[in-house]
Design a protein around this nucleic acid. Structure first.
Ligand code: FES
Ligand code: FES
Lengths: 149, 149
DNA sequence: AAATACCCTACTGTTTTTGTCAAGTATTAT
DNA sequence: ATAATACTTGACAAAAACAGTAGGGTATTT
């Protein structure tokens, strides 16, 4: 359960490659494609979203490529996944868009909400820099001391 | 991102209704259907899985229905979702079945693994009893102090 | 035997996912 | 200028997953 889409997975791996070039060298889609074994066409879609979100910027023409828009320790995994897969919402009732008429009488609503918040909090603490350094740890994420329904 | 399937959602809500009858009164599919607004046919599929997993038992004939196989404080949300959606595996590489050739050189593998473990740990701490009582809290879930890649 | 209630398998329409393809725009090097 | 490089964009399609229906069968009670 709770599968991450390939777009999200590839997106993080692509960002990792781009981060490696920062701040000197723009990284081309082709290079990312070869290193991470993802097709150029698919990466185009992914990187486009991340560029529009302001996480990376692009440089056209020979010698061009992609480069981080801010330093690696200021880009969290959460911010990448948010752009590619939308916000964490374990049920459609929790979607920013979709409301639910049962929400007040629903016995599970707050449970899914709490879990979602926990996931989000975790992903926010991990940055590209952490990923590159190879150390990431879970910091006693505490959503709420107690939730009364 | 990270959407839970309706099977998982309905399953937890159905278990909640069954738990309310425990240990005296078996709860029928029809009752669950009406209270939780899920079709009888769909619930049959879901409850069948949960019965085969040993979480509930069934009583046939008039006066029958479903009843918990052990007390509500011994049934975690994790155990319910595990049966209906399989184990938490954010990527196919983490699936018990599917291996991945890149796993050793993969920069994100341990990240998804850590997140998955965190989710699982959270869901294991919440029982049906917690759900019924309306209090569930996140207990400083700590997967590992530090993961070195 | 009639009524109740669970059991089981198959099937189908819909949505989401996972990509591919083709044509276009901007920049640099020669 | 012109060719080569590299990003940009939108349309499209196969495949998988999801959500749910349908229909017949079995066991138990009254
Ligand atoms: S069914 Fe919508 S909030 Fe639970
Ligand atoms: S691609 Fe399989 S482990 Fe990362």
């Amino acid at each position: 359960m709770l599968r991450l889409s390939t777009k999200g997975q590839y997106g993080v791996r692509a960002m990792y490659e781009i981060a490696r070039g920062y701040p000197e060298t723009p990284v081309t889609i082709k290079e990312i494609s070869e290193r991470q074994d993802v097709s150029v066409a698919y990466l185009e879609q992914i990187l486009n979203k991340l560029r529009k979100a302001g996480l990376i910027k692009s440089i056209k023409g020979p010698g061009g490529g992609y480069i981080l828009n801010r330093s690696a320790d200021k880009i969290s995994i959460a911010s990448i996944l948010n752009e590619l897969e939308g916000p964490v919402a374990l049920t459609s009732c929790l979607d920013p868009e979709g409301g639910c008429v049962r929400v007040d009488s629903c016995v599970t609503h707050l449970l899914w909400k709490a879990l979602g918040e926990q996931v989000e909090a975790f992903l926010k603490t991990i940055t590209l820099k952490n990923l590159m350094a190879g150390d990431f740890y879970s910091q006693e994420v505490k959503v709420k001391d107690k939730v009364k329904v």
